[in-house]
């Protein structure tokens, strides 16, 4: 363990703001990106479910051909 106390660790020898500035932004990016992706995926799933439910309601679901569109 290189540091002997927390305050030195945070101060990073007068370069603290720069080091932690990088750390925070990178951490934020790596948390935000999956969160945004999960949210947009959820919204997509809702939209698709709504669309399929609508199709199921007005009988379009009874497609005669079984082959799925490749």
């Amino acid at each position: 363990m290189y540091w002997n106390n927390l305050s030195d660790f945070l101060a990073m020898g007068s370069h603290g703001p720069y080091v932690w500035g990088c750390f925070v932004v990178m951490a934020a990016a790596m948390i935000l990106e999956p969160a945004l992706l999960r949210r947009s995926r959820k919204r997509l799933l809702e939209r698709l479910r709504r669309q399929y439910r609508a199709e199921a309601l007005d009988g379009k679901a009874a497609r005669e051909s079984s082959g799925e569109c490749p």
């Binding site: 540091w3 370069h15 720069y18 080091v19």
Partner: peptide, 21 residues
Amino acid sequence: GFLIAPGDAQQGEGYRIIFLH
């Protein structure tokens, strides 16, 4: 990178950014 690695001679502690950069 942040806890175990020693400081750098000229760049002090700021060099630790390379672990992200």
